[in-house]
Computed example of a mutant assay.
Amino acid sequence: MIRIGAVLCCVALAGCNAVSSEGPLAGAINSDAGQSGAELGRQNAAVFDIIDIDSRSARLVSDYVSSTLSRRFGIGGGVGPVVIGVGDALKVTIFEAGSDGLFSTSQSKQVSLDIVVQPDGKAAIPYAGSVRFAGKTLDEARKGILAALASKAVEPDVIVTSMGTPSRTVTVSGAVGKPSMVSLDLTKEKITEVIAKAGGPSTQPYETYVTLVRGSRTGTVLLKSIIEHPSEDIYVQPGDQIFLVRDPRTFTLLGSVRGDGRIEFGANDLNLLEAVALGHGAIDDSSNAKGFFLFRYEEPDIVKSLLGPARFQGLLRKGMAPDAKGRYPIVYRFDMSHPDSLIVGQTFPIKSRDVIYVSRHPSVDLRKFLTIVGTPLGIAAQGAATAAVLNQ
């Protein structure tokens, strides 16, 4: 009798392979991790590894700060001295000590001149001729005028004031209140200050991406990250282009959950438990508590820290390849059967475009097969086969 039961069990388990199902079992994901395409028999298979979500990995991922803008453009944006440019409007006020000078009378010892810097970078000043302004600071321009008037005016003094800076503009467009060419003052201004001049963002910071284009370099970062991390709020430079785009952060929930699909964050932050809850939770009688997986292209610094240098290099040799942004494919494994999972899950942050997959329990495929069989053979085998699967 025992021999017959074993045979029936084997037949039932073998038949499970013929039952169509949705998505891989946890065992298939676990066994494919760290394998090359050649080892899997699929030459172009994506190479990935699995990392368990525990207190260490959750803390490392949560504490990581992306530095897209500061890394690409340098903290502060490499801003040098602020100088006058072609087209800028200036007010030049000249003072003289005597009442019989070039610019003074008995009624006034000063004169104010409104000038515009010409395409050759110069502007005309009476008795001083063409004076170069472009490329100079206000103080350097003042000293240049003084030098030109030193032997002509009576103890002259000069004040140069900026009245307009058309040469110092930044284009701000997209999801802002007033898309426009924003003029910079003769001071250093940051991204958030320039966005404010353009009417501020028209969408929530947690779903607004900021792209800075400077020459041939481009960097994109979430506005929320710029606000929270001052190192990302870099100084802009004349000629920069800033684009704001609303792109609601979403994740995809698949597998043995009550509500799968693409889901918007709808909040400033989202952790793993909240993400699963947005899909109304896992299905009790079919989900595998040990089989919660999060698929992500992860930042290289995080991958190297979690895997270690040796493991990381080994995966590269096997064919693990980055995406267009230099991030590597990683699968995070989450075990909901442990009590502390409800604590750790609160600290693990979800990122935009994450895929969360809740695998089904192995017994699900067995139940499908036995339902299809629907014979005394299937009924007789059901108890022994189910027990065997559950004891795995």
Rank of each mutant, 00 (worst) to 15 (best):
V172N: 04
V172I: 14
S173M: 14
G174K: 13
G174Y: 11
G174H: 12
A175F: 00
G177N: 08
G177R: 05
K178M: 04
K178G: 00
P179K: 03
S180N: 11
M181G: 01
M181T: 02
M181Y: 08
V182A: 00
V182Y: 06
V182L: 04
S183P: 07
S183I: 00
L184Q: 06
D185G: 15
D185Y: 09
D185A: 15
T187W: 01
T187G: 09
E189L: 13
K190P: 03
I191W: 01
T192F: 12
T192C: 09
E193H: 13
V194F: 01
A196D: 11
K197H: 10
K197S: 13
G199I: 02
G200T: 06
G200D: 03
P201Y: 10
P201A: 10
S202D: 12
Q204Y: 08
P205S: 12
Y206T: 14
E207K: 13
T208E: 11
T208P: 05
T208N: 09
V210M: 09
V210C: 07
T211G: 09
T211I: 10
T211Y: 07
G215V: 09
S216Q: 14
R217A: 10
T218D: 06
T218W: 03
G219E: 06
G219V: 08
G219A: 05
T220C: 02
L222S: 14
L223N: 04
L223P: 02
L223H: 03
K224L: 15
K224T: 08
S225N: 15
S225H: 15
I226R: 03
I227H: 06
I227C: 05
E228T: 13
E228H: 12
P230Q: 12
D233Q: 02
I234F: 02
I234G: 01
V236H: 02
G239I: 08
D240A: 00
L244Q: 01
